[in-house]
Design a protein around this nucleic acid. Structure first.
Lengths: 348, 348
DNA sequence: ACACGAGATTGTTACGTTTTAATCGAGATC
DNA sequence: GATCTCGATTAAAACGTAACAATCTCGTGT
């Protein structure tokens, strides 16, 4: 029998979480004051603040985020939708996002679209349901119309690794045309003659832009841009890269240089070529894109185009949170980083 | 001037999201019915359901997750706390989690503890504030007491890649002792004599267990388990691996076989050794752990211990959701997968 | 013609917080 | 001593949904 008026729950059972009211009762103040301690501590006198804070600790009170969101009209979470969480490029971006978000007290809801429009749509729906404060997204295709639907709901959107289409939105990207040009210039400088471009889904902007850069470099060197052979794969993974290598080997004449739209493809291609006895770079030069960590550790270390990945995620988050917290003074920005060429063993 | 009584918002401005009431008004039913359509469609007559559903579409209504959570007492989100999102092992786990969660209509909040107890604690606080339905966590150390604090709040917890300490909790893990033994048995079979263990923080259970397995294998082969040299690094990344290689090279006598506690360390060690002109596997045998995708693409393809990673995440989520959705019939399970040895070029 | 019951729908209340306006108290000013 | 001011605190009203009991509507059996 309980002697102190508390309902003593059996050990291991769950006691309902204490609410702001319980804290208020224990501290001898009103619920409003507790809310003030939580949200505007400077508005409450030192002594009461201390009393409330120790009550919070004693009860193990944790603010109910949903109630807060409901009343305040906005949450402390942001949504992050990426194309492939298995790609270290996006992992690095996510790390940048997560670090800054968590510094600012925001939670990150992760969505992986796997390049599928349907899954992306589903993720955005979840974000909308959660009433996230804002969304960071690397769209899986060019159709960014649905993002305006989010904006109409008052959810800020920042494009990641995708340039803005209009001036009224924030975007953070890396110049893929320049990057593609850098890659092919480098191949040409190594004496490449027949260059092929191993790429992913045609709908992906990154693939298109890198291709345009490649063609531009060809033209600048006095070659026919139309001479760029293309091997397009449905995914941009190492497995797809290996299949691409098989495709290439099945053709009558092998290119003497390959530009891969990302490092995963390049690593897969490399594996496929080596298994077939093709020497890299002696028989074929190979360059990737992203400069993921593993590019330097591969069988033949991979030349690549480096992007400021972590920075990309961090900067995008910075813009998003600024847009959320200072909606009136916020100026939309389109930030374009420049990529770097990293030369290793896989290119002549 | 508006002629239809609607307040016509200026183009591009944000209209407040329609609520369940607006839908009800348009469909000519009560809010309760709309709620029923949303949550128990079988309870409402076909004709009304259709009317409500088309009203939902017309208004672009999206359920307010926070209000729903507040009222229902539980949310449709789960928290996932991992040690290193930069490690493909955890990325694969996360992919498994995300896939199943999203199939079941759950959102995943991602937290990266970076092996830091403080960050882990912060993530758990965020999870608690969001009133997540459950938590999947790979704890960064052995002290799982704080997880009981979550359980007291009614938040289910499933341990991932960590065996259960008690029978009243779910856990999904892979037998690391067996894995460690497999690795060292393989090294011994290749004629290894002086074996070193390159590992991460001592507090990590994975590192301890793999070490125990290694020692067991030594003992079983009639060797002195104490002869296992150890190089412990503060992180389990490729960069740390490279530093480990430098440490090893600085010693007077180089081991003839290395067992690395994960593939990232192994890849770093490999890079470090190769830069110093040490041949793998001729001078030194090298085996990693996890069999991440990149293990097979490295300079010398890496022998490793394979774990059912994606499955690990999926199974853990399965258990968690079962515990959430069927709290009374749910039976706690401790599932232990077995690892596999994958032999490649890096070992004799 | 009537009561009955099953199915469909509704009204109401509560969830935990934030926010606004109102109240209180203690000095300072006339 | 009455009035005013200002800071600190409080009371009360939302926010959008889910759940439950209550009500309504018919068709059915007597």
């Amino acid at each position: 029998m309980s002697t102190d008026g508390w309902d003593e729950a059996p050990a291991g059972s769950t006691r309902p979480s204490p609410s702001i009211k319980d804290v208020a009762a224990l501290a001898g103040v009103s619920p409003g004051t507790v809310s003030n301690v939580l949200n505007r501590p400077e508005k409450v006198a030192g002594a009461t603040r201390d009393r409330v804070e120790s009550a919070i600790r004693e009860l193990g009170f944790v603010r109910h985020g949903s109630a807060s969101t409901l009343r305040a009209g906005h949450s402390r979470t942001i949504g992050l939708s990426v194309i492939d969480i298995g790609n270290p490029f996006f992992t690095d971006v996510a790390a940048g996002v997560e670090d800054l978000a968590s510094e600012r007290g925001y939670a990150v809801i992760l969505g992986n679209s796997s390049g599928s429009r349907v899954k992306e749509e589903r993720n955005l729906l979840v974000f909308a349901e959660q009433r996230v404060r804002g969304v960071l997204i690397t769209p899986s295709d060019q159709d960014t119309l649905r993002l305006d639907r989010l904006r109409e709901r008052g959810i800020s959107v920042v494009l990641v690794d995708h340039p803005a289409e209009r001036a009224d939105q924030c975007a953070v990207a890396v110049n893929d045309v320049t990057g593609g040009a850098m890659a092919v210039e480098h191949l040409l400088a190594g004496g490449a003659d027949r260059i092929a471009y191993v790429t992913g889904p045609a709908a992906m902007r990154q693939c298109q832009d890198r291709r345009r850069g490649a063609e531009r470099a060809l033209a600048a060197a006095g070659r026919d841009p139309g001479s760029l052979r293309e091997v397009a794969m449905p995914a941009m993974t190492a497995a797809a890269g290996q299949q691409a290598a098989e495709k290439l080997l099945a053709q009558d004449v092998l290119p003497d240089a390959l530009f891969c739209a990302n490092d995963l493809l390049a690593l897969g291609v490399l594996r496929g070529l080596m298994q077939a006895g093709v020497r890299v770079p002696d028989d074929v030069s190979l360059i990737g894109y992203d400069d993921i960590d593993f590019a330097s550790a591969s069988a033949v270390s991979l030349s690549s185009i480096r992007q400021p990945t972590y920075q990309l995620g961090r900067t995008a988050t910075e813009l998003l949170l600024d847009e959320c917290d200072n909606p009136d003074t916020h100026a939309h920005q389109q930030i374009m980083f420049q990529p770097d060429l990293v030369v290793r063993e896989s290119t002549r």
